[in-house]
């Protein structure tokens, strides 16, 4: 079966810095793919390329059999790719509900009334129903992460890119987030998960790729990757050696 999302030989240069070098990977339907790598490995750049906010120097991104490189970000969002950012970036002047509503109205193309009820359902499903009419500045950081997720979900994605969605959460909150993600997988949403918390990403991912200085240095099932000597040296070394 053709993959849902395919990244082909993507290279991204900023001046002399090569943030991504010939990176390839595929995301299959219903899969959770983990991406790990030290700081500056190019994970966020990779997301920016997929969602269209950065144009790669070379290579292309294929989504559902169609080339999406060079498309504007809002088009890519409407085609079915949503992301969360490393730093939660809700619209601070809108309420939590309005934050999600705008994603449903534009990303999914719903009328304002349907978007409003859709927003209500999604907020309930991520456990933010009670704070829907507060502003994002009035809710806890953990709740802002969920809001970020809710907003991405409201665009009706087939593929969801999660950029360090669990950073700064307590272990209890991480457990709840993992539960949420498993629920999304059951609803048929495929995910790419960039995460620093190795245990979390190892546990939830079907496959893992490892980036280091913009290069893909390993790919495989979580236990295979963890045993790869190159990975141990490049990344896990400090912790696992």
């Amino acid at each position: 079966m053709a993959p849902l999302l395919e990244v082909r030989k993507v290279t991204c240069r900023f001046g002399a810095l090569e943030a991504l070098a010939d990176v390839d990977f595929q995301l299959r339907e219903g899969e959770i793919l983990g991406i790990i790598g030290p700081n500056g490995a190019g994970k966020t750049t990779l997301f920016n390329v997929i969602t269209g906010s950065i144009r790669p120097s070379a290579g292309e991104v294929i989504f559902q059999g169609r080339k999406i490189t060079g498309e504007r970000p809002y088009r890519i969002c409407r085609l079915g790719i949503a992301r969360t950012s490393q730093i939660a970036r809700p619209f601070p002047g809108l309420t939590v509900r309005e934050n999600v509503l705008i994603a449903a109205a534009y990303g999914k193309g719903l009328s304002l009334d349907r978007a409003r009820s859709e927003a209500g359902e999604i907020l309930t499903s991520v456990g933010l129903g009670a704070v829907a009419d507060l502003t994002p500045t009035a809710i806890s950081p953990a709740s802002r992460r969920r809001l970020e997720l809710a907003r991405a979900l409201a665009t009706g994605p087939r593929a969801l890119l999660l950029d360090e969605n669990m950073a700064g959460l307590t272990s209890g909150e991480i457990g709840e987030m993992l539960g949420l993600l498993n629920g999304l997988r059951e609803r048929g949403i495929s995910m790419v998960v960039v995460e620093h918390i190795i245990k979390a990403v190892m546990g939830i991912s079907d496959r893992i790729i490892v980036l280091d200085h913009g290069h893909k240095i390993a790919e495989g099932r979580p236990h295979e990757v963890a045993a790869d000597p190159q990975v141990v040296v490049a990344y896990l070394g400090r912790r696992y050696a």
Partner: peptide
Amino acid sequence: RSAFGYALKAIAQDEDAAEGVGVNT
């Protein structure tokens, strides 16, 4: 009262994020 109004407010607050949730900014 319309989605258009929300889009404009979202652009004011974070244009990249607005584009990221599907607004043709």
